[in-house]
Simulated assay, not measured.
Amino acid sequence: MRPKLTQQQLAEAACVALGTIRKIERGERGVSDSTLDAIADALGVDPARLRTDRDVAQTRVHDALPALSAAIAAYDLPEDGPVRVRHELREAVQEATQWRLAAQYTQIARELPGLLTELLRAYHVAVPDERAKAAGLLVRACRSADAVAYKFGARDLSARLIDVMRWATPEAEDPLLSASVAYVRTETFFAARAYLSGLRALHQALNAAPAPVTAPEIAARGSLHMRAAVIASRARDASTAVSHLSEAREFGDRVTEGVYCGIAFGPESVRTHEVSVAVSLGDEHVGRALEIADEWKPPKDLPAERRSGFYIELARAQLWSGLPDDAFESLKVARHIAPQHTREHPWVRQDAATLRRLKRADSESLTNFAEWCAAI
């Protein structure tokens, strides 16, 4: 949260009238969702923190899931309607990607149903020369919608969105986009705990990926290795996980940290995945996560979703290592970075419940946190 903003400064930052800010603070008027989001953005916090009802943000996202489902139900037969020019659609898709990387899921839930419907129209009415670009935009928008579906537990909807992505990707004629979709598809294998099948799918994607010459091509291949390391570690295949992690590290050292085809990749992202692999392997590997955290922290320019994930993984390693105080601090850091991502993460709920049982002496703050993430 930005410190010590005056009412005037907050009004200017949020583009809300000063009188409105004063009335809201005095409780003299309600606040619309759009105004709440503007104020939350200005303060740098999740809108849920400004509500007395802790379930509001979660409810808003869950309420939007049927609309996302409806948007892709007739993906091959969209209804007639308006379609913006391509550069406006491209800007809307880019904005949705930024929301995903920043873990701003309420924004995605509100805007993506209409955008997906419009992009499907654009794809079906596109002339042949424009079809590939329309397909690419559709795939990228589905990726952002999938982030909400997957993280909020709508796994069937997530799988359907991925199917639409796989349906449209060949039309995009972009091998880098195909690699990106293979990366995202791994979610279905995580959800089903079909780790070996997921690993085979990633190996197939690696074989089909373009030669790693340019930075985006290097990042595509490195991202697939990064993902393969994690799913191999979930299968408790340490040697395969370490091998893929080594490949990812090699590719990561060849590019600048950045977002390539919608995926954050580079040496910093690989480092966060070292922690993920160590925690997934468990047992004697957990200490490696603590070693990494002792010497390195994810930089602030890394996407919020990835940074919060690092601290969520670290908290689990600390808890397993008998460091409950450190684990709770890591969970609070994750919450500060990306509240919505942290709140919806199943490991956060499990670990918060465990911490509350272990540390009754500090029951008030732990209970508040556990209630916030629905652990109790």
Rank of each mutant, 00 (worst) to 15 (best):
E257A: 14
E257V: 05
E257G: 11
E257Q: 14
G258V: 06
G258W: 09
G258C: 13
V259W: 04
V259D: 07
Y260V: 00
Y260R: 06
C261H: 00
C261R: 04
C261T: 02
G262Y: 04
G262C: 10
I263N: 08
A264V: 10
A264Y: 10
F265G: 09
F265C: 12
F265N: 13
F265R: 13
F265V: 08
G266Y: 02
G266Q: 11
P267M: 09
E268N: 09
E268P: 01
S269L: 08
V270N: 01
V270Y: 05
V270G: 04
R271I: 00
R271N: 01
R271W: 03
R271V: 02
R271H: 02
T272F: 08
T272N: 06
T272L: 04
H273M: 08
E274K: 08
E274N: 10
V275T: 13
V275H: 06
V275E: 07
V275N: 07
S276D: 12
V277Y: 09
V277E: 03
V279I: 08
V279C: 05
V279T: 03
S280C: 15
S280H: 12
S280R: 02
S280P: 01
S280F: 04
L281K: 02
L281Y: 05
L281V: 03
G282I: 06
G282Q: 08
D283I: 13
D283K: 15
E284L: 07
E284V: 05
H285R: 09
H285Q: 03
H285D: 11
H285P: 01
H285N: 06
V286N: 09
V286P: 00
G287S: 10
G287R: 05
R288Q: 13
R288E: 14
R288H: 15
A289L: 14
L290D: 09
L290W: 00
E291Q: 14
E291I: 06
A293N: 10
A293T: 01
D294Q: 11
E295Q: 15
E295T: 15
E295V: 11
E295N: 13
W296F: 10
W296S: 04
W296R: 02
P298L: 08
P298R: 05
P298F: 06
P299I: 11
P299E: 08
P299L: 13
P299Y: 02
P299S: 15
K300R: 10
K300E: 15
K300Y: 01
D301T: 12
D301G: 00
D301H: 15
D301S: 12
L302Q: 12
P303H: 08
P303W: 02
A304M: 07
E305P: 00
E305D: 14
R306M: 05
R306V: 01
S308I: 01
S308P: 03
S308Q: 07
G309Y: 05
G309I: 01
G309V: 06
F310L: 13
F310Q: 08
F310H: 12
F310R: 11
Y311M: 06
Y311H: 15
Y311C: 08
I312S: 04
E313N: 14
E313C: 09
L314S: 06
L314T: 00
L314D: 01
L314M: 05
A315P: 05
A315I: 00
R316D: 07
A317Y: 04
A317E: 02
